[in-house]
Design a protein around this nucleic acid. Structure first.
Length: 264
DNA sequence: ACGCTAATAT
DNA sequence: AATATTAGCG
């Protein structure tokens, strides 16, 4: 449709995955290829189209209460034409209460797993192999600012369930749900060691079920997301930088060093 | 402290 | 429906 053209092509996004330098190795040489990407890298892929919840909004959804009288109709103010905004991003840590935008420590807004973010996740998981793909490590390697171990753990849990549920139905199309997941190629080794209790008969081995690649992008047509206000005072809890990752042939991307998006 | 699963909460 | 949080265990 319309919005699709604003998005990076599949290949564009795909390029990121391959050719990772053995992380520990990279570390040994103290190469610091990239700064942590903000959750935004992902989101702002499409802007030429909508400004509603997804475009301008970075990956995070803030809880908002727009109780402004009852003038809901005005929703047409902006249409297309939105193109800047780039820098105005903010992860809008849920405000409320007092000091609002305090740094770390306040509850972060719910993380939104955009296709890009998810892809990064999958890439990392794939490169780690089933053994090392644990929340902490994944989180570190993804190097996404503000991403917490819990975020990853939660997503990982779902992801695993998804993979598990996929097996045995080698020829089934993904249910309309699982959009996010079904949109990503299955890392060859992701499973193989999963619970497997399910198999009726053929529990022997796993043959990567090649699932279809639906165009899938999570759009909620519902008008739900709202725009962000900005707190005039202090900036949100994290430094933002957004950048469209344009690595045509980068050789590695591990975080390492300066980054420090999250700590404990 | 971490990780995992299942259940439950928001 | 998507995420987060918690419980209970290894």
């Amino acid at each position: 449709m319309e919005w699709e053209k604003g998005l990076p092509s599949d290949e564009d996004l795909a390029s990121l995955s391959y050719s990772l330098v053995p992380w520990n190795l990279a570390m040994a040489f103290s190469i610091t290829p990239e700064k942590s990407r903000t959750i935004q890298d992902a989101n702002r892929a499409s802007e030429t189209t909508f400004s509603t919840s997804s475009s301008t909004n970075l990956g995070v959804a803030a809880e908002e209460e727009d109780r402004v009288g009852s003038s809901s109709p005005g929703s047409d103010s902006k249409k297309q034409k939105i193109s800047e905004d780039a820098a105005g991003v903010d992860i809008s840590t849920a405000e409320e209460g007092d000091s609002g935008t305090e740094d770390l420590k306040l509850k972060r807004a719910r993380l939104v797993w955009t296709p890009q973010l998810h892809k990064r996740f999958v890439d990392v998981v794939a490169h780690l192999g089933i053994k090392n793909a644990v929340p902490k490590t994944i989180m570190q390697l993804m190097n996404v600012e503000g991403l917490t171990r819990e975020n990853v753990a939660s997503h990982l849990q779902k992801y695993r369930l998804y993979l598990k549920r996929m097996q045995g139905l080698t020829s089934e199309g993904p249910s309309s749900s699982d959009k996010l997941f079904s949109s990503t190629p299955v890392p060859p080794q992701s499973f193989q060691d999963l619970g497997s209790g399910q198999g009726s008969g053929s529990a022997g081995h796993v043959g990567v079920p090649s699932m279809m690649q639906m165009p899938v992008y999570a759009h909620h047509m519902g008008m739900q997301g709202h725009q962000n206000h900005h707190r005039g005072s202090g900036g949100p809890a994290n430094p933002y930088m957004m950048q469209q990752n344009k690595f045509g042939s980068m050789a590695s991307y591990p975080p390492v060093g300066g980054g420090s998006a999250n700590e404990n």
